[in-house]
Design a protein around this nucleic acid. Structure first.
Lengths: 256, 256
DNA sequence: CCATCTTTGTGCACGCGTTCACAAAGACAT
DNA sequence: ATGTCTTTGTGAACGCGTGCACAAAGATGG
């Protein structure tokens, strides 16, 4: 346990900011690593460095959970691991179904970190009848027809969609109708869900495009710098030309 | 977001908010779909619905790019597709290397949406010598030893890391040293990179944990509601009890 | 040319998240 | 006990992002 017994449990356990929730898994991972190395306590500074965040932010994040630290010492690693796990709901078992066992679905099914923390792959589901019964990651694939039954029987509340974009909304609707209230969507589509259902999306294509944007910007600034310290603003200060790249890009004309 | 240099006078063409950049790919996708259906123009209201965002937000986002709409009419689909593509840097070709060809790496290599928009898989790299030469998605896997040569020869500036967590930082360092300035990280680790290098991470485990948090919260509220229409605030108004879950959770004790 | 109608572009206010900076809490040594 | 030293927890300020609400711009019809 902690050195001191000073824990006043969050006066406001309800209002944990979303941004904080999103960082808790990060802290938990860093803490788990420390735990495995049998490190007893850790300061906000050290832990923040390990998690790649600002230490003040980390302390404020933890303050939403309660006063779990000891001034002058830091945080008790084991205790904090438990508190965060509990806060995230990882002290219970979450059965998960994966729908769409293509390349990605199979990769997800094989993903080790899946089962490691409270999550259990309850079923793999695919629309292709020829997949049925075929084991992936040691679990036999079941046909889409079984979807509702599986969800209800196992009390599944979290679904992962790894189908092609065209099938995603339909699968989503069926999942929700069957009782799923949290969805992790890998299909490149916007999912429409009723109130009360959470959706998080993972989109490779979008991530790459964001990187491309910054990459282009870097290349542009670099080019300007190389060309001689000419403020880019001047070059663009001309007529508000239409087809002008962000940094003197190729003119290129091809609208419609 | 890598701070720029001394300039900033650009009327406003330069300062596109990060949040807006993150939504541009979403708009682009919706617009592309409209384009394929030969829809000539679209209003902010319609497009916003398709992209799953607020229409005012969409208009403000577009206003950072310029005045590309026509009042009373809407936006020209083809023109907007081109403008956003150009802004995101998708009018040029981005060679990408994928490091770590396990289940996930193979899935990424096979991902169609990859090549579709300006991105080209320049090489697949894996540390396992027995993988060398073996074709994945029609591309022969190359050994890690070739990493630097490939990046320099092809002018690769974007790298995708799909290795186990333990190898990620090392791979990252080599990528950066070889000239890569944008990294998409699928390994569950915090990557340390020098100034000027962008990192975006995709972490299945974190996403699931965030869902679990909300799921737990929903379950807790539901339980309280079922217990009789007692306002949750009242129930928690009591004495600040010690090991209390966020919503009257199970006590559960298991720190160590 | 004028009136009307639609839809954009944006000023403004608000709330969330981040960061700084510091008082208070506690450990530890003397 | 008392003083010193370390580190937490948080008040306050600031900046970013969001959404409202509306004036201005332009199309369209008479």
């Amino acid at each position: 346990m902690a050195t001191g017994r000073t824990h006043r449990p969050a006066t406001r356990s309800r209002g944990i900011p979303e941004a904080t929730v999103a960082r808790l898994p990060l802290y938990l991972r860093a803490l788990t690593a420390l735990s495995e190395r049998s490190v007893p306590t850790v300061s906000s500074e050290e832990l923040a460095a390990a998690a790649g965040v600002n230490s003040a932010k980390l302390r404020k994040d933890f303050s939403y959970l309660g006063s779990y630290g000891t001034r002058g010492v830091g945080y008790d690693v084991e205790y904090l691991v438990y508190q965060i796990s509990r806060e995230l709901g990882l002290t219970q078992d979450w059965p998960v179904v994966i729908v769409g066992i293509g390349n990605l679905g199979a990769a997800l099914a094989n993903y080790g970190g899946f089962a490691s923390r409270g999550f259990r792959v309850a079923a793999l589901i695919d629309a292709d009848p020829s997949m049925a019964g075929k084991p992936v990651a040691g679990i036999p694939v079941q046909h889409t027809d079984e979807l509702e039954k599986i969800i209800q029987d196992d009390g599944v509340s979290i679904g992962v969609i790894a189908t092609p974009a065209g099938a995603a909304q339909q699968v989503c609707d069926r999942l929700v109708a069957a009782g799923v209230t949290s969805i992790l969507n890998f299909a490149p589509t916007v999912l429409n869900v009723p109130e009360g259902v959470d959706v998080r999306k993972v989109d490779l294509s979008i991530e790459l495009q964001i990187l491309a944007f910054h990459e282009q910007r870097k290349a542009g600034e670099e080019a300007v710098a190389d060309a001689g310290a000419v403020p880019p603003a001047v070059a663009r200060k001309q007529q508000p030309s239409i087809d002008q790249g962000p940094d003197g890009d190729v003119p290129a004309v091809m609208p419609a």
